[in-house]
């Protein structure tokens, strides 16, 4: 981060402040709506501590909605940051953990963990991490030998790996006979509903160091995007940076997958949108993705649990409903 000019810092503060305000607004909105009703004013009273701590609304907001909103913000931030890192490292604007099959790989690991009867943490998180690393290695092996990772070959290998992962998932699911099946299927579609504050804290403990690490490498990502020679000439160790970033982001993604299943397209939509608005400087994009991605998933989850008349739908359905058409649009734009 040698080229940190005052201009960047003031812009960083300005952008982060704006997105933080949006995130906070989304989180307050997210806490004020739910299946048992509510309202922004009473929620603000509860959040500011001006209400009876034994009241029902107090319990529901502090112990059901807030953990869920916090989880959505964390997961959204992770997935969108993961997308940004993969896009920079693979120099491909269409890269994303979900599309590349990294999420699918960790889902296989997580399902295997669930079927083996492991606990959610550390058992399932570990098998999910192993699964994501395995798919990452698989993709890199498939695309190695090409000096530049071409858009088409990378995307195609990703599609293949993803298809393979889906069929392995279907295979594992079809082996399962009992009632765990329902739970696995709901979880696969992306489920934020079982968040409790302890789990959210644990997840935050795993993810925040990753965010900081990635922010430290944000300038290196800028240089990598300019090309290997350029990056090498500034004295950064490409290999170390690349491996550190890949492993960190795979770890983050698998941690979120083991908690809430497959939530797609967050890692695609947010980095692109933010790049369009704020430009391609990663020192700005990393915090923007964390805050913006968080807001996106908080809002998608809010829609997922309030739109249906009865019950709720998985958040992954909403992110994909918005994300998939956007992906096609971006694909068309990038071809031009």
């Amino acid at each position: 981060m040698t080229a940190k000019t005052p201009f960047i810092i003031s812009r960083l503060i300005w952008v982060s402040g704006l997105l933080l305000a949006i995130l906070l607004a989304a989180m307050i909105l997210g806490s004020s709506m739910g299946s048992s009703g509510g309202g922004i004013i009473s929620v603000l009273q509860v959040l500011s501590g001006k209400s009876d701590p034994d009241s029902m609304l107090h319990t529901i907001i502090w112990r059901i909605r807030l953990p869920r909103v916090l989880l959505a913000a964390l997961v959204g931030a992770t997935l969108s940051l993961g997308g940004l890192v993969f896009q920079a490292l693979l120099r491909n604007l269409l890269a994303e953990p979900y599309i590349l099959g990294i999420s699918g790989g960790s889902a296989i690991g997580a399902i295997a963990g669930i079927l083996l009867g492991l606990s959610r943490f550390p058992g399932v998180s570990l098998t999910a991490f192993l699964g994501s690393i395995a798919t990452l290695v698989l993709i890199l092996v498939m695309t190695s030998g090409q000096t530049v990772l071409k858009k088409e070959s990378l995307l195609l290998s990703g599609v293949m790996v993803n298809a393979f992962c889906s069929s392995v998932i279907m295979f594992l699911v079809s082996l399962t006979q009992d009632s765990r099946l329902h739970n696995i299927i709901f979880w696969l579609m992306g489920d934020l509903s079982t968040a409790d504050i302890r789990q959210v804290g644990l997840l935050a403990g795993m993810l925040l160091p990753c965010f900081i690490l990635i922010f430290r490498y944000s300038h290196a990502m800028n240089l990598l995007l300019m090309g290997k020679e350029m990056a090498q000439s500034t004295g950064i160790n490409i290999k170390v940076v690349t491996i550190a970033l890949l492993v960190t982001s795979s770890f983050m993604v698998s941690a979120t997958v083991s908690y809430c299943g497959l939530i797609g397209f967050v890692g695609l939509v947010m980095p692109h949108l933010l790049r369009l608005i704020f430009g391609a400087d990663h020192r700005l994009l990393v915090p923007a993705c964390i805050l913006g991605g968080g807001s996106y998933l908080v809002i998608c989850d809010l829609l997922a649990r309030t739109l249906p008349e009865q019950g709720e739908m998985p958040a992954g359905v909403i992110t994909a409903l918005i994300g998939a058409p956007l992906f096609i649009l971006l694909l068309k734009r990038s071809k031009r």
Binding site: G34, S35, S36, G37, M56, T59, I60, I64, R65, D178, S179, H182, N183, F186, S193, Q310, G311, E312
Partner: peptide, 26 residues
């Protein structure tokens, strides 16, 4: 209604302020 039996709506259950829930393992 408190959701379907495989996908229970925690918030609605808590809001109904029950003094007993009877659940099924399967």
């Amino acid at each position: 209604k408190i959701g379907s039996y495989v996908r229970l709506d925690l918030e609605r259950i808590v809001a109904l302020n029950p003094d007993l829930c009877i659940a099924i393992k399967d």
